[in-house]
Amino acid sequence: MSHSFAQVWRKEVLLAYALLLPSAVFLAVFTYWPILRSFWFSLHDVMLGDSRIFWLGAENYLRLLDDGLFWKVLGNTAFYTLTTIPLSITVALLLAVALDSKLRGMSIYRSAFFYPVMIPSVAAGMVWVFLYAPGYGPINSALEFLGLPRLDWLYDSAWALPAIVLMSIWKYSGYFMLILLAALKLVPSDLYEAARLDGVGPVSRLLHITVPLISPTLYFVIVIGLLHSYQIFDYVYVMTQGGPADSTNVLTFYIYQNGFQYQDIGYASTIANTLLVFVLGLIGLVALTLGRRVHYMGER
């Protein structure tokens, strides 16, 4: 009797594995195998297009420690991530709060802030190269019109990375705004009314009611922001090629340089592993610091 029950169960298990197989094969070959292989490569001297491979042990990692450019690149990556994410989320939150009401022309506003997400990164990068152009670019014309000094933007090692940050805020805050807007719609309006009756002003309403209540979504948006910050490769490639003076060189681009321009797969893999550790570390940090303080609506 129970024998046949076991048969039914085994059939279900087989079916489950069969259903997972297509995904699992691609996941294994194109996500997890590369990660393992990257670690393996980092312990070797491997050249692109050369089938020979030489054991190096920790040498690539030691080289990393002595590589001044690597530390600069790591700093640039951290700077980009740690400015773009908070700034674009702040912009997104303010926009979302402004749009979280019955507003005439609501859909026009939403679309206008969101459309940059639809634009390919390469197109966005190119347009902003034009906008930032020192001589004839409209941004400098506007600065001049306002009586402010012109800047060299992408040609100035102090301003190149902030320029990319500015562009990223334009590109992504609309997306974050939408996600936050969806969360705001779930906040019960009587909470605001109660706070209003208690004489709580708009700023502290935002900080003490809105932000805690949508904190799970904010947390999610931060993680999404981290993942999107990878895309800086496209902008660096299109706008600056890492320059001037490596002031916009970031981890993804440095991997590309080492792997594809210098063909040094072993060393490039070493940097790639650092990138994985960097991103996982940031996500872990976010999970530990913010994830704990997240308020889940309806719980306690």
Partner: peptide, 17 residues
Amino acid sequence: LQVMFPIYAIFLTNFVT
């Protein structure tokens, strides 16, 4: 976890593969 490893993080070895 795959979400955390977009192509930008693993393009090098995928290219080799």
